[in-house]
Structure formats: C-alpha cells, structure tokens
C-alpha cells in the first residue's frame, strides 16, 4: 500500500461523490419537472387554453 493512499483515495472519493451528486440532481430535477408538467396538463392547463 502506497503511503499516499489516503490522499489518492480521498481525491477520487470526493470526485465520485460530487459527480454522483450532479448526476442524481440532474435525474431528480428532470423527473420533478416532467411530473409537474404532466400534472398541469392533466388539469387542462395548456398553451392552447390561452387562445380558448
């Protein structure tokens, strides 16, 4: 085991944690917006209703 294992593992661990956070945030935020949009459309709120 390298004497620098703590520093190397720490660097890769932090990188993995932050990247996983970015990916998770992207997925959850996208799903939340899709759900909100579907909810609004199911209630009959749509762009066409502006004209109607």
């Amino acid at each position: 085991m390298s004497p620098y294992t703590f520093f190397i593992a720490g660097a890769y661990g932090v990188t993995a944690f932050v990247v996983a956070g970015l990916v998770l945030r992207a997925v959850l935020d996208y799903r939340a917006q899709v759900r909100a949009l579907a909810d609004l459309e199911s209630r009959g709120v749509g762009r066409r209703s502006r004209r109607g």
């Binding site: 996208y30 949009l37 609004l40 709120v45 762009r47 209703s49």
Partner: peptide, 12 residues
C-alpha cells in the same frame, strides 16, 4: 421544462 411549468402555472 421548468420554464414551461412556470408559464403554465402563471396561466392557471
């Protein structure tokens, strides 16, 4: 999508 949701929410 967030902007579409915002527009529709205001419309509603």
């Amino acid at each position: 999508l967030r902007r579409r949701v915002r527009t529709l929410t205001i419309l509603e």
